[in-house]
Each structure stands twice: as structure tokens, then as C-alpha cells.
Amino acid sequence: MTGPEDDHDNAGFERLFGGDGLTVGTGFPLTDSRQSRPPVERELELATHAEAVGFDALWARDVPFRWPRFRDTGQTYDTFPWLSHVAAHTDDVALGTASVVLPIRHPAHVAKAAASVDRLSDGRLVLGVATGDRDPEYDAFDVDPEDRGARFRESVATMRALWRGEFPEREGWWGELDGTLDLVPKPTTDTLPLLPTGHCRQTVEWLGANGDGWLFYHLPEDTLESYLDDWHAAAGEKPFAMAMQAELADDPTADPEPVHQGFRAGSEWFVDYVARLETMGVDHVLVGVSEAGESDPERALTRFAEEVLERV
């Protein structure tokens, strides 16, 4: 749901938030290859399949290094080249980052890479941004973890300036622009939509004023209601998106069981749950879809689309 002061209507943001109903996306790696390089051709086949069966977005993580203790390398490939490759193999599904870790990246590099993907995808990029959660990465990039919040705020302001203006003048922890340099390409619209992920070491008021939406993790329903109240008090009608895991049980009537960041349940329960999320005010759900036991990713995506999405 866009507000009256929004100055972007890129295709990805409109796909996710331009209508009245809740939209649903899914995320890479679709083959569930979380500790090694995923098979590219199979990932692309599943991406086009997800688009064909009705998912509204494909989200990619930002994980620079493999940290065995974390046991999750995202989709392995760097976020922006990967989404550019995905853009070439899909038509109009939104492409999201979930989420770019701003404190360990130079804001000009992020701004240029994101604007490039946005242009190459005809405006389909939605930029989730975060402060990160993998401690060794800060040492690898010579970043003091205590500076994350300030670096995040400065990165957001700098990227906005690079996208919106010509030959901007700014300085910060990243360096200085004295008005003799301009960033090209510019995005397809005035600015790329930014969705802070989690709190990003900011107040909800700051997030509401400076973000174009809020991407959060799975929360219990009573906690989610409280977060939604706080968000809309701070941000008005700006959208709220939520990530969750959905493991489909064989029995469509199976009751829910908690799993990490979500539930294992039958499709009947997921229909009711997604409908409740929409009623509560969630605008988009990023769903990691799987099946109980040995899962065929293509079948899991098809089942969730046919047994849940088409019925909500």
C-alpha cells in the first residue's frame, strides 16, 4: 500500500504492495542447498516455476562468507549478479534482497549495483537492507560492530542522495563526494524502495520515516499485532512484510507444529493462517516452502500455490 508521499512506483514495489491484498514470495536457494553452491540451472528452473504458479517475488540473501558455525550460506552467489541472472530468466516477478548488509558495504557500490539490477530488470528490484548478524564478517571488513547503526543510517542517506540527485555533495565514513562525480545508472524511478529488515539498530520511528516498508521475521500472532500497531503508528500506511517457514504436512488437515521461523502444518491450516495475516495488516509474506520428509522443491511450490495461495 503506497502512501501519498511515496516517490517511487517501480514495478517490483507495485507488484508486492500496489494492490489491496496480501502477496506472497519465496526465497533462494530454492533447491535448499544451504551449505554449498546451488545448481544454477535447477535454481533457474524453480524460479520460473515459482513465477508461473503465482508467487509474486523471488528474494535473495546477502552472505559474503561461509561461516560453518552458522550453517547457512544463503544462495552462495553474490546478491546483485545473481538477481541480474534471475531477471534474465523471468518476466515480471518482483526481485528482492533479504537483505543487503549495509555496514560492511560501500554505499556507492550498493547504489550502483542495485540501480543496475533495477534497470536490467525493468524496475523489478525491491531492496531489503539490514545491519547483519554474522559477527566474524565485521572483522573481515574492518568494521566495529558498535558502529553498525550509524553506518546503516549514513548508507541509507547516501544511497538516496546518489539515486535522486546529480553530482551530489556528501561525506561520511565511506569517503567524500565533492560535486564532481555522479552515479550512473540511476534507477528506473526517483529512488529504489528500501525495506529495513528487523530493527537495524534504529527506533521504529526512524524506520517509519526513512524506510518504504518494514521486513520482519516470523513472530507469534500476539507479538505481531503489537509490532503492526507500532509500525503503523510510526509509518502510516507503509507496508509490512514478514518472512516465515512453511513445511507442508502430507495430511491437509494436520494441526500446526512449530519449526524454526514458522510451522509444519496441513494446507487447511495454512489457508486460515495466511488469511489471518492479511486481516491483521501484513502486506507481503516471504515463505520458505518445503514438505515434511523428503521434499521435491517443485512439488512443494506447486502444492503451496494450489492448496494455499489460490484459496486465500
Rank of each mutant, 00 (worst) to 15 (best):
P256M: 02
T23A: 03
D142P: 04
L177R: 11
G12M: 06
H106E: 11
T180I: 03
D222H: 02
E268D: 13
E137C: 05
E307V: 11
E166D: 12
D229V: 01
L46D: 02
E307T: 13
D178M: 09
A108S: 12
R105T: 10
R71Y: 09
V100T: 01
A57V: 00
E310R: 02
T26Q: 03
G208N: 03
P136W: 13
T23W: 00
T76S: 10
T31K: 06
P239S: 05
Q245L: 01
T203K: 15
G281R: 09
G198M: 13
E51Q: 12
Q245N: 11
Y77I: 14
P187G: 12
R160I: 07
G262L: 00
P256I: 00
L22R: 01
D182A: 13
R160M: 07
D6E: 14
L177E: 08
V100D: 01
M280Q: 07
Y138M: 15
A292H: 04
I104S: 05
P103A: 10
L30M: 05
V271I: 12
T90L: 13
A88W: 05
A292E: 06
T302W: 06
A94F: 08
E257F: 02
E171N: 14
G74H: 05
A52C: 12
T131H: 11
D139Y: 07
E43I: 03
G288P: 01
G293W: 07
V129L: 10
A157T: 13
A241C: 07
T48A: 13
A47P: 03
V110Q: 13
A209I: 10
H109D: 13
E205V: 10
A243P: 07
W214H: 04
R164T: 14
L177S: 07
T73G: 05
R61Y: 02
V285Q: 00
D91Q: 15
M280S: 05
E294L: 09
E43D: 03
V100Y: 04
A265G: 07
A115W: 06
R170A: 04
P64I: 15
T31C: 11
A50P: 06
E43M: 06
P252W: 13
A50D: 08
G21R: 10
G293A: 10
